[in-house]
Design a protein around this nucleic acid. Structure first.
Length: 410
DNA sequence: TGTCCACTGGAAGGGAGGGCTT
DNA sequence: AAGCCCTCCCTTCCAGTGGACA
């Protein structure tokens, strides 16, 4: 045991006092700084549930990392303390992960099924059947169900508001149970997509979470740091730097906490006993790179091919290009790799997806007589992207590919 | 002022893949 | 086994269009 590769790491004093989960965004602390008002407001709305009445539906708006989910989960914990989950039941559902009507109904219903064999399968039944099963399950007991739909805009933009309409009037089909909805969205304008009836029913109560400013972020960090670290590990100046950085990114507390956690991990790995500003800078770069690398890695092969086409054109000197240019190179690449080539229509969708992931910039532009098309540009350094893309086996045949200086690349 | 390009992006639908029901 | 259902990924078809140029 004396000579071990672990030696350098076991000797050093760990930086984290306890569990590093304290710094994860999903952790719900026993106090939410600068969200006291929202907590009060939501508690007031939901308190009717404790009297056995159905609370109003609530719509919560706010950008990422403004504490929406934290407040909702905090209230869930508090309700449980009081009620023990007997009459009030909370169901949390993230509609970005479960984003089909069938999926939502199936998931919610399964929360009320203990017997594994009675669980509703993830496919096979009609949506109406699943809805009926959900109604039956809910109505088995007299209870108030608070259904939280996080990222509710995702399900509306993809599938329309039929599901919401159905859920909003589910109480007509229930005799013993009652359901309230809490919708969480980071898109203020998403209600514009909704049918007016759905809109008014869903937003009995509205709450808006504004972004944290740097001082508020600092308070949050201080609170968490004092739990996660011993005194002196995370100096106030370091925390201030982190909150300043996160405040620039529209006051995202999740970002701030990630930065602090990764900074601490870097410090720990370097066997240092305190976090320095260098650690923070490095953590910032690491997080940014990791996010991009992860996004590219998890792309389907066809999207990778499209991305590679954009990068290749870029390397060939065409900084900006049209959809047609991308498609030309893409077709060439798919021929060389032996992948079936998708239609241009499909490829434009893939380009838009890459745009939404922030990997490329694409905006529609008119060149007058030259037509109207997307102008596409890589948003990332070519080398970095290529490094990741080249790890994909399917793309092996086109390693080192350069497009013919053909196209009319702008 | 009108033309006309190179697409855009919506709509509809097909079919493969999963799996229930009878 | 035949008949359904739901979702995902795509294709086909196509009306619509911003703006440089004639």
């Amino acid at each position: 045991m004396e000579e071990s590769i672990f030696q350098p790491y076991v000797g050093s004093r760990p930086i984290f006092k306890t569990d590093r989960d304290i710094l994860r965004p999903a952790f719900v602390p026993d106090r939410l700084p600068h969200r006291e008002d929202q907590v009060d407001q939501l508690a007031q709305i939901l308190s009717t549930a404790l009297r056995g009445e159905r609370p109003s539906n609530v719509l919560i708006f706010g950008k990422t990392g403004t504490g929406k989910t934290a407040v909702v989960k905090y209230i869930e914990n508090e309700l449980k303390k009081l009620d023990g989950g007997r009459t009030v039941q909370y169901v949390y559902m993230n509609c970005e992960i479960v984003d089909t009507p069938y999926g939502v109904l199936q998931n919610v219903a399964n929360r009320f099924v203990e017997n594994l064999s009675q669980r509703i399968p993830f496919t096979g039944l009609s949506t109406d059947r699943v809805y009926q099963m959900l109604v039956e399950k809910l109505d088995e007991e007299k209870r108030i169900v608070i259904l939280v739909l996080d990222e509710i805009d995702k399900i509306v933009t993809k599938n329309g508001d039929d599901l919401l309409y159905q859920l909003l009037k589910i109480n007509d089909d229930l005799t013993r149970a009652k359901v309230s909805l809490i919708g969480i969205s980071n898109d203020l304008k998403f209600t514009e997509w909704l049918d007016p009836r759905v809109k008014s029913r869903l937003s009995d109560e509205k709450m808006v979470f504004s972004p944290y400013n740097a001082e508020e972020l600092l308070d949050i960090l201080r609170q968490r740091a004092s739990k996660a670290f011993d005194n002196g590990v995370a100096a106030d100046s370091v925390l201030a730097l982190i909150s300043a950085l996160a405040a620039q990114e529209h006051g995202d507390a999740r970002r701030a906490l990630d930065l602090l956690r990764v900074s601490a991990e870097l410090a720990e790995r370097a066997a240092e006993d305190r976090i320095t500003e260098q650690h923070v800078q490095r953590a910032k770069n690491k997080i940014e790179l990791d996010t991009v690398v992860e996004a590219i890695k998890s792309l389907p092969t066809q999207s990778k091919l499209v991305l590679l086409a954009i990068i290749s054109n870029g390397e060939a000197g065409a900084d900006r290009m049209t959809t047609g240019d991308v498609y030309g190179t893409y077709k060439e690449l798919s021929r060389k790799t032996g992948m079936p080539a998708l239609t241009q229509r499909r490829v434009t969708d893939l380009i838009s997806e890459l745009d939404m992931l922030g990997l490329v910039h694409a905006r529609v532009k008119s060149y007058g007589r030259g037509g109207r098309t997307k102008e596409v540009q890589s948003a990332m350094p070519f080398v970095e992207v290529k490094k990741v893309l080249e790890k994909d086996e399917f793309l092996a045949p086109v390693r080192g590919y350069r497009p013919k200086s053909q196209t009319t690349l702008i």
